[in-house]
Nucleic acid binder design. Structure first.
Length: 457
RNA sequence: GGCUGGGUGGCAGAGUGGUAAUGCAGCGGAUUGCAAAUCCGCCUUUCAUCGGUUCAAAUCCGAUCCCAGCCUCCA
């Protein structure tokens, strides 16, 4: 496989440290509120990545954390007069529901920050002992000038970092760019006892601690949204490298942003799309399809048209699968994924290109009359779909889902009546029934083997 | 200002030197009682702009313009 590595700015062959245990760490959400569509792009992208990795290597350990201590969580908890765990558990639950709807498989480990406070203390102590961190006014800060490699990931010159910055530099910092590892908590704020007083972790140290705990000091792949390159990943890299004296990450992968109608989602614009809301009128599979329809590194523009196109495309694939529904695929058929599909996927996860190969397959499915060939086509489509996390439901389920108040019995009764009218050549009645169904967004299809229906999405 | 992605036909979206994949939408035809689905064909000399290199450029080089992101809240 080849990946584009943010650190080297180049696409290079992926060689894991241990092919029996490829290690992947992806930054998960801070669970303080409902997750929006942009929050779901990384889990979907890296879900596909890990599905492919698992097929290429003997073992994979995938960790995707939950950040359950953070000042935004504290604020929400204080406002609602509840413990932070109430907030974090509530939104973790919502997040998981969204992931399930989008067909995202659970990671091998889903560590939470609050379960790793002692590991965080150890990392901070190691940094202090190594001369890379210092205490000041109850804080522990990372000493940026102590690490010569700082800025290499995000290509920033530490000396110029704060030029033009819009923040006030805290007076206790030795250097302007130093960042917090541990900060003091007031009595009414959540906190943990530590060698430096009661407090809570800074933003970046938790990932250093959790990645090392679950995956080791040097990991193969670290992923996340592009906005995390700086400061989050730059700081993680500095901490981990200095705490362990070892290289932190071999391949950095970052996905592009999701815009909505070409604008960044923001509360002030009022265009924040929550997956929870999207799911009310779109299937998780269609949402997933949209998220995968653009190469993961490129920006993705979320529009109604994109969703519509995803539905149309899925109709096409499920239409082909429905045509092949009577075809039995033997268990021992072996790997049938088209070479072009596999090559595209292994080349930095080129999903759009890979998808094009599947459309070719769908056309073959619709034109072939060879049973032997259809068996292979169906297997190829389903196996390829497994890598993408698509096409795994029953085609009939796909076509009958998505409508409002679908009463299958009522529809079947109307269709039976229409069939009778057709047999009597009562075209007026037959068409009238079709119109009635069309109002309910039901499309009838008269096929060779009888009439079927689907929900117009 | 610095750094990072990206600008491809109506839309989406591949394509890193050899003459624009694929899908959607639209149009014409086949099929159908009529449709839908499906199939066939057409929309497709053009790749933000301007220069340059080359036998050959969407692809390489230079300059410019535009969009999005980051520059210590952020997937």
């Amino acid at each position: 496989m080849k990946f584009y590595n943010t650190e080297t700015k180049a696409k290079t062959e992926f060689v894991p440290i241990d092919s029996n245990n490829v290690t992947v760490y992806v930054c998960g959400p801070t669970v303080w509120n409902h997750a929006h569509i942009g929050n779901y792009r990384p889990p979907v992208v890296f879900d596909v990545l890990t599905r492919v990795l698992r097929s290429q290597f003997a073992g994979v350990t995938y960790a995707r954390n939950i950040t359950d201590i953070d000042d935004k969580i504290n604020k929400a908890a204080a406002e609602q007069g509840v413990d932070i765990s109430v907030i974090s558990e509530r939104y973790t639950e919502f997040y998981h529901q969204g992931l399930e709807a989008l067909g995202v498989l659970p990671p091998d480990v889903e560590p939470k920050v609050t379960d790793h406070i002692s590991e965080i203390h150890q990392k901070i102590q190691a940094l202090i002992d190594g001369g890379h961190a210092y205490e000041a006014e109850g804080h522990v800060l990372f000493d940026v000038p102590s690490y010569a490699g700082y800025g290499a990931l995000s290509r920033r010159d530490p000396d110029e970092l704060l030029a033009g910055a819009r923040i006030d530099v805290a007076s206790y910092k030795k250097s302007d760019g130093d960042f917090v590892l541990w900060k003091p908590s007031a009595d009414d704020q959540p906190g943990w006892d530590s060698p430096w007083g009661r407090g809570r972790p800074g933003w970046h140290i938790e990932c250093t601690a959790m990645a090392a705990t679950h995956l080791g000091e040097t990991i193969d792949i670290h992923g996340g949204g592009h906005d995390l390159v700086f400061p989050h990943h730059e700081n993680e890299r500095a901490q981990s490298t200095c705490a362990h004296g070892a290289k932190f990450v071999n391949y950095w992968m970052h996905n592009g942003f999701v815009n909505v109608n070409q604008e960044k989602m923001s509360k002030s614009i009022g265009n924040v799309l929550l997956v929870r809301d999207l799911l009310e009128h779109a299937s998780g599979e269609a949402i997933r399809y949209v998220l995968l329809s653009t190469h993961y590194r490129a920006p993705l523009d979320w529009t109604d048209e994109a969703l519509q196109q995803a539905n149309n495309s899925l109709d096409r694939f499920y239409g082909a699968l429905r045509k092949m529904s009577s075809i039995e695929v033997p268990d021992d058929i072996g790997d049938q994924k088209p070479q072009g599909f596999v090559d595209a996927m292994l080349d930095d996860l080129n999903v759009p290109k890979a998808m094009a190969e599947l459309f070719v397959l769908a056309k073959k499915a619709n034109t072939s009359d060879s049973n032997a060939e259809l068996v292979k086509i169906k297997a190829a489509l389903l196996q390829s779909g497994e890598w993408l996390g698509l096409f795994q439901q029953d085609p009939d389920a796909w076509f009958s889902s998505g409508g409002d108040n679908i009463d299958a019995e009522q529809i079947d009764a109307l269709i039976a009546e229409r069939s009778k009218a057709q047999a009597d050549k009562n075209w007026a009645r037959a068409d009238q029934i079709r119109d009635i169904l069309a109002e309910k967004k039901i499309v009838v299809e008269d096929g060779a083997s009888g009439t079927s229906w689907r929900v117009e999405k």
